[in-house]
Every structure is written in structure tokens, then in C-alpha cells.
């Protein structure tokens, strides 16, 4: 038995077929097989959330999923959320509100925040903090991140104040 599996993934709208060892982690498939290096590896022990992507619409830690487990899935990475010339409201808000310093945690933070806003377009500060429980930042102290998420929420779906 040849120890490789063929995996079909739809990433940011385009379909890819890759042949990998079963032990290939989704994060490495994204970064090394598909060249999408926006998804980072921070801790590699399932704690920091830097590797967060959306798998069939849910935020997940791609360092703790085998590529083979994602067979047939729809995946969105930070590259699929918005690009340099078409920033997503969250990307724009992280920029404006200084929601990043070194930027290492940022793709994962934004993907976790995007999943929150899908479900809850107007989260309270406490709800934002709780939704980002699984994302660690070594630089910002989190306040500006929370502010950025709330400001993106307002930009995406304004509520009269």
C-alpha cells in the first residue's frame, strides 16, 4: 500500500488536488503545497490560533487537522478574505486601530474574528474577548484588537447610535 493520499480541497474558491502523506497537516498543505503562507504556525501545540482558517465555514486550528481530514472541504484563508487592493473590513480596521504590531498573530486573529462576526454581527466587548480566547498575541495587549473587531463590525453593518 503506497502511503499517500489524494486530497481535493477548495481553497479561497479554487479547487486543488494534492497528493500527500497521511500525516501532512492542513497548515503545511496550505503553506507548502499551495504556497499560501498567510496562515502562520505559532505554537504548533494547538494553543495560539495563528493557524486559524475557516473549514466549511467554521474557524479551526489548521495545525491540528490532517490535510486528509479536509477532503472535499471548502477552506478560506486570510488570502481569501481580502487582498492588498481590496482589504476586508477587518483588515482595514486592524490597520486603522493599530490592532497589530509584529503581525504574526494577525491572520489567525482576523479569521477568528471573521467567524465571530458571521454569527454575531454586533458583539459586545466581552463577546469579542471570549471569541478570541483561542488566539494569543505577544505584542498588542489585545485592547486594540478588540477595538478593531468592534470597529469592523460597525463598518460592515452599521447600527444607528
Amino acid at each position: 500500500m503506497s502511503n499517500r493520499v489524494t486530497v481535493t480541497l477548495t481553497v479561497n474558491g479554487s479547487e486543488h488536488e494534492i497528493e500527500v502523506e497521511p500525516r501532512r497537516l492542513l497548515v503545511h498543505a496550505l503553506r507548502d503545497d499551495l504556497g499560501l503562507t498567510g496562515t502562520h504556525v505559532g505554537c504548533d501545540t494547538s494553543s495560539c490560533g495563528a493557524c486559524t482558517v475557516h473549514l466549511d465555514g467554521l474557524a479551526v486550528k489548521s495545525c491540528t487537522i490532517l490535510a486528509a481530514q479536509a477532503e472535499g472541504a471548502q477552506i478560506t484563508t486570510i488570502e481569501g478574505l481580502g487582498g492588498e487592493h481590496s482589504l476586508h473590513p477587518l483588515q482595514e480596521a486592524f490597520w486603522n486601530e493599530h490592532g497589530l504590531q509584529c503581525g504574526y498573530c494577525t491572520p489567525g486573529m482576523i479569521m477568528a474574528a471573521a467567524a465571530l462576526l458571521e454569527e454575531n454581527p454586533h458583539p459586545s466587548e466581552a463577546e469579542v474577548r471570549r471569541a478570541l480566547d483561542g488566539n494569543l498575541c505577544r505584542c498588542t495587549g489585545y485592547h486594540n484588537i478588540v477595538r478593531a473587531v468592534q470597529s469592523a463590525a460597525q463598518a460592515q453593518a452599521p447600527v444607528a447610535s
Binding site: S46, G49, A59, V60, K61, T64, A112, A115, L116, D133
Partner: peptide
């Protein structure tokens, strides 16, 4: 349990 990403899996 843990955080949203872990709870999703």
C-alpha cells in the same frame, strides 16, 4: 471547553 476553534472540532 477550551476555545471556539477547539470546540468546533
Amino acid at each position: 471547553i477550551a476555545d471556539p476553534q477547539v470546540r468546533n472540532r
